[in-house]
Amino acid sequence: MSGFRTLLYKEVLRFWKVSFQTVAAPVLTALLYLLIFAHVLESRVEINGLRYTAFLVPGLVMMSVLQNAFANSSSSLIQAKVTGSIIFVLLPPISYVEFYLAYVVAAVLRGLMVGLGVLVVTGWFASLEFAAPGWIVVFAMIGGGIMGSLGMIAGIWADKFDQLAAFQNFLIMPLTMLSGVFYSIHSLPAFWQDVSHFNPVFYMIDGFRYGFFGVSDVSPVVSLGVTSVSFLVVGLATLALLRKGYKLRY
């Protein structure tokens, strides 16, 4: 497993060396969301008996975890592909499973690091509870794993940066923004509530938020089931691509 260890170390070192951009910047973005939405809505909105800011903070934390996990594996792979430095990891005796694990674990770590940053910075503005911390950790890890895997698929599939940007802007962004980060889906018309139930990100956010307040739109067990199955599907799909060498080995 030395290949895995080194590749993981390299992936973590890669984002850590540019942590101002990869960790600090998304924390600031989340903080801006909080300041603006809290300013506009704090006195007018209450969700599930929670003040709006308290409701929003876990959503922002999880959204940051998800988006940054995706960004990490996808940008690392596309950069390595475009510059050609991908061969440095294709020439050594590293199995496709080690390859997958290293990229996904690094993506999860980046997601958790950003998520923790967002929590620390935005937590000041809300009175948070930690009703069931185990759920918080589990959903953060599974969500990061799903997005890290999706990032790998996108990074492997895309030949150019604009293709990756399209994947990110037209798939990942809508899925995360429309997942209940900023609102409870119970506030939506019935049709859009039903649509939201087909978005796996909704369950990640909802389950994650349950860990804070013990309140959620659907049962956390259901959310855990949906996210676990999603992780399994996306993970196996990524492994299948790697095994085949799709767009990596010709």
Partner: peptide, 25 residues
């Protein structure tokens, strides 16, 4: 390799240490 490829995140020594690690050294 023929192409002049490199990983822009690392120093020469880091590059070589990482490459060693890939081979289990």
């Amino acid at each position: 390799p023929q192409e002049l490829v490199f990983d822009p995140f690392f120093t020469v020594r880091e590059t070589l240490r990482i490459q060693s690690g890939y081979f289990g050294i």
